[in-house]
């Protein structure tokens, strides 16, 4: 149902400035261009503060660009265009696990019974069905992030946006959730934009890696990931993987260093 030759998201010359009273305006994004194909999994890496979250918020429609345009080709008017998994935990403490997952469906006006069923299905896929009636306070960080993932996926968005979804998790759990996401995506095949600090994660998950420059952020390099699908964490074992990881890190390091200089 997805067709990678078709453009899903077209980003043209996006700029975003932030004006704070009594301070110099910050230019977070500068002339950002990118094409994303339908059903493509794109990972964005870049130094901290380079405007990755800003870009994602613009795609999600939470923030408008200062100039430029971004067009998303929405094929199915019945489905939400985007759903987001945020950088910080964003699940509501006042709703149960199932209530959180149902939230988006309720907003869409899905009948209660169907919403319950769909929420149940996704909770099972992320392994949280036994916690459906628990409140988030009783969950670990990894479980909370699974809830956030299920909440975004259950509405079947055309584009899934993820802002460092696993950044707060320990390394082992991160690997587990990466595998889960990989399995889910390989079955589900929608357009995904995932922001990450980890080149390793980007190489395991993505079709292409977008490397951003230090602030003001723009596309420094787009690297296709050559490993065949379906993939698993095993790809890490190949020498090509290590070589590519090293090459991307060289390029990224230059930006991280220049971002640090700027900060001083």
């Amino acid at each position: 149902m997805s067709d990678p030759s078709q453009v899903k998201i077209r980003v043209e010359g996006i700029t975003r400035r932030f004006e704070t009273r009594g301070r110099e305006p910050v230019e977070a994004l500068s002339r950002f261009d990118l094409m994303i194909g339908d059903g493509e999994f794109v990972c964005i890496v870049g130094p901290s503060g380079c405007g990755k979250s800003t870009f994602l918020r613009i795609v999600a429609g939470l923030l408008r660009p200062s100039s430029g345009t971004l067009a998303i080709r929405a094929a199915d008017p019945a489905r939400p265009t985007c759903a987001t998994v945020f950088q910080e935990y964003s699940i509501f403490p006042w709703l149960t696990v199932a209530g959180n997952v149902r939230f988006g469906l309720e907003v869409l006006g899905v009948p209660r019974r169907e919403a319950d069923e769909r929420a149940g299905t996704w909770l099972e896929k992320v392994g949280l069905h036994t916690f459906r009636d628990a409140y988030p306070a009783a969950l670990s960080g990894g479980m909370k992030q699974r809830v956030a993932l299920a909440r975004a996926l259950v509405v079947e968005p055309e584009v899934l946006l993820m802002d460092e979804p696993f950044a707060a998790l320990d390394a082992q759990l991160r690997l587990v959730l990466q595998e889960e996401l990989l399995a889910i995506w390989q079955e589900w095949r929608r357009t995904v934009i995932l922001i990450t600090h980890s080149i390793d994660e980007a190489l395991v998950l993505g079709d292409r890696i977008v490397l951003m420059s230090a602030r003001p952020g723009r596309v420094k390099e787009v690297i296709p990931v050559p490993f065949p699908r379906p993939r698993s964490g095993e790809v890490r074992n190949s020498p090509e993987f290590r070589a590519l990881e090293r090459r991307i890190w060289e390029s990224l390091r230059a930006e991280v260093v220049s971002a640090e200089r700027e900060g001083e």
Binding site: G61, R64, S66, T69, R73, A74, A75, T81
Partner: peptide, 22 residues
């Protein structure tokens, strides 16, 4: 494919008046 194309609609993210001349 054509059916899909006919159905497709562009969701735009553009600067509004607030961004164009803050």
């Amino acid at each position: 494919q054509r059916d899909h194309a006919a159905q497709a609609r562009m969701v735009l993210r553009e600067p509004g008046p607030q961004e164009r001349d803050a």
